[in-house]
Simulated scan of single mutants.
Amino acid sequence: MSMLPNLAPKKSSAPTSSQPSAGDVDKKDKKEDTVKLLLQMWAVMIGFELIHQILNVVMSFMDPTALRTVAREQAEAQGMSDEIVNATVVAAILFMGFINLIIIAILSWMVMIVKKRSKRLPTAFLLLTIFSFFFILRVLMLFFASPGANDVPMALFAIDGCVQILVGVSAGVAYALSRTDEPVQMLTEYAPADIKRK
């Protein structure tokens, strides 16, 4: 099953008129409202994901036991000191947070591309749809997970879990909106000419 809807234009036998009717205006307004709501849902999804990643970095600093265990095993094999182990753990946490921030920045850029209807619109739409589907699956797996850190307050785990649920809910709404007729029509209008001819 393809993530992108079918971009082939629908054939219509109805005669076209030079003057737009009231029904056409209403359909255009409906299409713009649906696309606007879709963009808002993607923006909400990305915003909550940013909060989740910040909380993830904070919790990793509060209890880096798992990372420190792995780093200490490597350090013992290579004869490194505890200072190097601690520095490695801090660097790993910051690096993972930086990578996640880059992904969030790319998703924000994709939302701007869809909003401006630029030539990369199909690629941006596909990437946002894939991540929406990923966030939906992640929130489903959240109900089977259990806190593994001991030094992190349970309230912080609860807050992070609520944020992840909000990410999943907004992603689900965005995914449902992306499969409606209005975004499909938007993709058809801004698709490259070779795609439209197929």
Score class of each variant (00 low, 15 high):
Pro5Phe: 05
Asn6Ser: 13
Asn6Tyr: 03
Pro9Glu: 08
Pro9Gln: 09
Ala14Lys: 07
Pro15Arg: 09
Thr16Ala: 14
Thr16Phe: 11
Gln19Arg: 11
Pro20Val: 09
Gly23Met: 05
Asp24Gly: 00
Asp24Thr: 05
Asp24Pro: 00
Asp26Lys: 12
Asp26Ser: 11
Lys27Thr: 01
Lys27Arg: 15
Lys28Asp: 07
Lys28Val: 04
Lys28Glu: 12
Lys31Cys: 01
Thr34Asn: 10
Val35Ala: 05
Leu37Arg: 05
Leu37His: 01
Leu38Met: 07
Trp42Arg: 01
Ile46Arg: 02
Ile46Ala: 00
Ile46Phe: 01
Phe48Pro: 00
Phe48Trp: 08
Ile51Asn: 09
Ile54Gln: 06
Ile54Gly: 02
Leu55Thr: 05
Leu55Asn: 15
Met59Gly: 05
Met59Thr: 12
Ser60Pro: 02
Phe61Asn: 13
Asp63Gln: 12
Pro64Asn: 06
Ala66Leu: 03
Leu67Tyr: 10
Val70Cys: 05
Ala71Phe: 04
Gln74Ile: 01
Ala75Phe: 12
Glu76Cys: 00
Glu76Met: 12
Ala77Glu: 10
Gln78Ile: 04
Gln78Ala: 13
Met80Phe: 07
Met80Thr: 01
Ser81Pro: 07
Glu83Asp: 15
Val85Met: 11
Val85Tyr: 08
Ala87Tyr: 10
Thr88Met: 08
Thr88Cys: 01
Thr88His: 07
Val89Lys: 10
Val89Asn: 14
Val89Asp: 05
Ala91Gly: 06
Met96Ser: 15
Met96Lys: 15
Phe98Asp: 06
Asn100Ala: 15
Ile102Gly: 07
Ile102Gln: 11
Ile103Ser: 04
Ile104Asp: 02
Ala105Gly: 09
Ile106Lys: 02
Ile106Met: 00
Leu107Cys: 02
Ser108His: 07
Ser108Leu: 14
Ile113Phe: 00
Ile113His: 08
Ile113Met: 12
Val114Phe: 01
Lys115Ile: 00
Lys115Trp: 12
Arg120Lys: 15
Leu121Gly: 02
Pro122Trp: 14
Thr123Gln: 13
Thr123His: 13
Leu128Ser: 03
Leu128His: 05
Thr129Leu: 11
Ile130Arg: 06
Ser132Cys: 09
Phe133Pro: 00
Phe135Leu: 01
Phe135Ser: 00
Ile136Lys: 00
Val139Cys: 08
Met141Arg: 06
Leu142Glu: 14
Phe144Glu: 03
Phe144Ala: 04
Ser146Arg: 14
Ala149Tyr: 02
Asp151Leu: 15
Pro153Thr: 09
Pro153Ser: 06
Phe157Met: 08
Gly161His: 13
Cys162Met: 13
Cys162Leu: 15
Val163Asn: 10
Val163Glu: 06
Gly168Glu: 03
Ser170Met: 02
Gly172Met: 11
Ala174Thr: 08
Tyr175His: 09
Leu177Lys: 07
Arg179Ser: 04
Asp181Lys: 11
Gln185His: 13
Met186Tyr: 10
Met186Glu: 15
Leu187Gly: 08
Leu187Glu: 03
Thr188His: 04
Glu189Pro: 03
Glu189Phe: 02
Ala193Met: 07
Lys196Asn: 03
